[in-house]
Write a protein that binds this DNA or RNA. Structure first.
Length: 411
RNA sequence: CGGGGUGUUGUGUAAUGGUAGCGCGCUUGGUUUGGGACCAAGUAGUCAGAGUUCGAGUCUCUGCACCCCGACCA
């Protein structure tokens, strides 16, 4: 894509009411735009990142048997009355239509997916069953904060699993754990992300949170210095020693909850009377697990972890483009290289604007695309294009013919 | 939801109760072209409403919005 066509622009100054690094950089670079507290428009660059993240998650969900669906945002009050959450969930958005009929804007989708499964899954032979979606969630946060880390409307991947036995649920839970590890690894934050023990509430002994360690975190996790097991604050308060190795030496870290997996057991299937006869004709309760990841929060977390004073430094797997091609001065080679890269399916942002070198470099650093290639009189005289990684200082000149090969090699 | 703070052009900021000014951006013209370049001319604003006052960006009240601390966050 040509940068001259991109309708978003970069900004030198961050908005004064946006103190969090993730939102400052994403707004300055033109990835997102703030509409109101906790509600953001995702702009072309940001959407490219979100789609990269989404696809990584999708691949991993498909591997563990998830079937992708898309459930509605607008949800009948009746379903929420059945589970009792119409009254108990404080952050539920309630809306009325013209005839005063009340509905909810979905903050999560158990109330929809359970009746859905109940309708279609009516034999033990249909089990287990896994469905997931990427969907907008609405939560009436009393206080949105931390940029895009805590929004009122946000895109979330939620997977729901249905089982007839506890063993089956447990086994799938472990599978989901693997998938989550893959997702965080592939999006670049794997080394910083811990699976922590968290309270499971009334219906499950434990749940797990995926906590990415960064100073911008809202949560506090305790990591065992002996075995690296992590527990969240509330669990730590319940126990003195590490549940795994019995060690008592912990370090405290601030972290962002980027994912959450939960054994719901029968909490939501009971209110809907979802039962299934097993092969011996005995009625069995259906058990559930749910598995969530907030995409915007993940994008924000990546920015919090990968940036410097100049801007964002995207991991290649989620970068909006692989290479930022910068043309300095007048030359025809830049356009040719742009076409060459596109022909080879290399995602390229071509800075063809009439701007000074300083502006283009500053923007490139701010945008944080993994590779920067400069084409100028100087580079051409030196033998080709100057290529530099965003996270490295040194640049090198390589021949134009070698550029594609080089970029394909370094995946 | 409790407490605190802040609202001035697209954005960042200045202005004893007395002519709303500056940087960036944007527009026009020119000079530039390897780290946000320069010159000139433009562009656009006091959150909304009420009150006090000869006079309100500034004081008072109400509303709205945003930010921070806390609470909350299956």
């Amino acid at each position: 894509m040509k940068q001259s066509q991109l309708f978003t622009k970069t900004q030198k100054d961050a908005p004064k009411d946006e103190p969090s690094i993730n939102a400052q950089l994403l707004i300055r670079a033109g990835y997102i735009d703030k509409l109101m507290a906790g509600v953001y428009t995702i702009l072309p660059l940001g959407l490219r990142v979100m789609k990269k993240i989404e696809n990584i998650i999708r691949e991993e969900m498909n591997i563990i048997g998830g079937q992708e669906i898309f459930m509605p945002t607008l949800q009948p009050k009746e379903n929420w009355m059945k589970t009792g959450r119409w009254k108990t969930m404080d952050d539920l958005y309630k809306v009325k239509d013209g005839s005063d009929r009340e509905m909810a804007l979905g903050p999560t989708h158990e109330e929809i997916v359970v009746p859905l499964a109940q309708k279609y899954i009516n034999s033990y032979r249909d089990f287990p069953f896994y469905a997931y979606q990427f969907q907008n969630k609405f939560r009436m946060e009393l206080r949105s904060k931390s940029g895009i880390l805590r929004g009122r409307e946000f895109i979330m991947k939620d997977l729901y699993s249905f089982h007839l036995t506890e063993e089956d649920l447990d086994a799938y839970y472990e599978k989901a754990t693997k998938a989550y590890e893959n997702i965080f690894h592939r999006t670049g934050i794997g080394e910083k992300t811990y699976r922590t023990f968290a309270s499971g509430g009334s219906f499950s002994k434990y749940s797990h949170e995926y906590q990415a360690v960064t100073p911008a975190g809202e949560d506090l996790i305790h990591i065992c210095n002996k075995c690296e097991l992590a527990v969240n604050e509330e669990i730590k308060n319940e126990t003195e020693v590490c549940p795994n190795c019995k060690g008592n030496d912990f370090r405290k870290e601030k972290a962002i909850e980027v994912g959450n997996i939960f054994k719901l057991n029968n909490k939501f299937t009971v209110p809907f009377g979802f039962k299934i006869k097993n092969e011996r004709g005995e009625e069995r309760e259906v058990l559930m697990g749910c598995y969530g990841i907030g995409l915007g929060r993940l994008m924000g977390t990546i920015v919090e972890i990968f940036h410097d004073e100049k801007g964002i430094i995207w991991p290649e797997s989620v970068a909006p483009f692989k290479i930022h091609l910068i043309s300095l001065g007048k030359n025809k080679e830049a356009e040719e290289i742009y076409n060459l890269l596109r022909k080879n399916n290399i995602e390229v942002l071509f800075d063809d604007r009439e701007a000074t070198a300083g502006q283009k470099f500053a923007d490139a650093d701010l945008l944080g695309i993994p590779y920067r290639a400069v084409v100028s009189e100087k580079s051409l005289q030196a033998g080709g294009v100057e290529i530099k990684k965003r996270n490295e200082k040194e640049s090198e000149i390589i021949k134009i013919e070698k550029l594609v090969e080089r970029l394909k090699k370094e995946v």
